[in-house]
Design a protein around this nucleic acid. Structure first.
Lengths: 202, 202
DNA sequence: TCTATCATGTAACCAGTTACATGATTTT
DNA sequence: AAAATCATGTAACTGGTTACATGATAGA
């Protein structure tokens, strides 16, 4: 059994930080700016507080080090960090791992589906309808992200393409699910409704 | 702007707990058992410690209450919990929300894709090949979960069907991605490789 | 009977989020 | 020059995970 290479830092925000520092040293605020401006915040959960935490963790783990401080006008001093060699290899290994090895994850919708029986079928059908229109909105967002990027190489937008593909698949899945519920000849609706009212205690 | 109905408990494990308690009162260990045995652990991140935590939170939030204690042989006493009315409505509202409103989530693979440029294209192609193989394994797992369930109504396996649909979509997306990289006439490979070696500092 | 595993719970630790703090600019 | 917003960071809190603890049963 291959012994899992335990990472010292697991927050994916750290991965993004490493990927910026591989190009040039920066201070946290600059990182913050870069992450927001390049739309990475759509792919990696970002928040101001976590960034400082993650930078601290990376430093403690020896993946980055202080490369001095800079001052700009009357602003407070800012610590500039740079990647260490360990950081460079960690970046590569981590990326390899993420790309090569899909993980079992726990999206919210999966959890809800696994408990779907607690709602009555007619309500579920209606809710699934709502979901599909919102999914369309999310698709529009992804497309907008792609459009608004302008001239950058499409390589840098694959994650949005991927999102689109998944949103699309989800939408089609829901369509099929609804069909199976409402099918007039052998739809699940009646059995489900019966089971639902029978089992509920109220 | 509709004021988000802030939940007191957000861990989805709590949702699963509510969904069991709606049927009958149980003590935590029983819940633990039920969650594992019914395969809910595949859909909701589960671990022993978190369960007790979540039960505590639910109790503090008034969504469940102690319904007494039970003793079985020489075993320690176990506190049995039951749903309150608040708990019942919370369960329904939460489910409605999850089904009706898709959330922007942050799967690991999306993060990796958004930073894919840090790896050279030939390596990425190979890794994507590996990933597809493992995706097939995950699909097999989902199918196995479906098969092994035997005679239960397919409604209770819909989350595995959903999983399958997404895994499939991901696999097809990767196929297309690889094609765009390696296409001999206008593939991204060469430009990517050039850009990659140019920009790296080593 | 000794050991391993199950049953059940608690406590210590760590990661992540929210809230706060403060000086610098910009706007009115 | 007052108010608002930006720039930058820290600290307190809370949620979640891991590790530990302990008695009970079952297998060797």
């Amino acid at each position: 059994m291959a012994p899992k290479p335990k990472r010292k830092v697991t927050n994916l925000l750290a991965l993004a930080v490493l990927s910026y520092l591989v190009r040039e040293p920066m201070h946290p605020y600059e990182l913050s700016r870069a992450l927001r401006d390049n739309g990475d915040a759509r792919s990696v959960k970002f928040n101001h507080g976590s960034l400082y935490m993650v930078v601290g963790q990376l430093a403690k783990a020896g993946l980055i080090t202080e490369a001095g401080t800079s001052r700009d006008g009357g602003r407070p001093e800012r610590t500039v960090y740079e990647l260490t060699d360990a950081g460079r290899t960690e970046l590569r290994n981590w990326m390899r791992d993420l790309i090569g090895h899909p993980e079992h994850e726990y999206p919210h919708f999966v959890a809800a589906l696994s408990l779907i029986g607690v709602l009555p079928p007619d309500e579920v059908v209606e809710l699934l309808g709502q979901r599909r229109v919102r999914l369309d909105a999310l698709k529009a967002e992804a497309r907008a992200a792609i459009e608004s990027a302008g001239e950058v190489h499409p390589l840098f937008l694959v994650e949005e393409e991927y999102r689109l593909a998944l949103l699309d698949a989800e939408s089609r899945f829901i369509e099929g699910f609804v069909d199976r519920i409402v099918d007039p000849v052998d739809g699940w609706g009646p059995a489900w409704a019966a089971f639902h009212t029978e089992r509920r205690r109220t």
